[in-house]
């Protein structure tokens, strides 16, 4: 495990840069992580992020794209436009969650 400086904060991350302790996460960290991915966070992004964090807290895994759609009410199209080029992974990373393990 390594430590990574995000803005003025330091968080624990794995080799791929996913945070390993979801409790270290703050909205400012999310904004800084998003910037690294070239994403400027909006209210719509935070809607996804808050569902992801809530679902992770309840189930222990980052939700799949289908779950984000069915349980979170976030359409797949919106998800891809909010987090282009790898929505599930990028959204999990910015939400301070581990890399999603599912195949779908």
């Amino acid at each position: 495990m390594t430590e990574k400086k995000v803005g003025s904060m330091t968080v624990d991350v794995d080799a791929e840069g996913f945070m390993t302790d979801a409790s270290q996460w703050t909205e400012d960290i999310a904004k800084a992580l998003a910037k690294e991915e070239g994403i400027e966070l909006t209210e719509d992004h935070f809607k996804v992020i808050s569902f992801m964090r809530k679902d992770f807290a309840e189930n222990g895994t980052a939700p799949s794209i289908r779950r984000l759609n069915k349980a979170g009410g976030i359409s797949t199209k919106d998800l891809y436009s909010l987090f282009p080029d790898g929505p599930a992974k990028k959204a999990a990373k910015i939400s301070g969650l581990p890399k999603p393990q599912g195949c779908v």
Partner: peptide, 18 residues
């Protein structure tokens, strides 16, 4: 259980995913 959708829904999902 693995969140793999039925074929019809999967086709919709693929199309929505671009």
């Amino acid at each position: 259980k693995l969140d793999i959708p039925p074929v019809g829904e999967f086709i919709e999902m693929l199309s929505d995913a671009g």
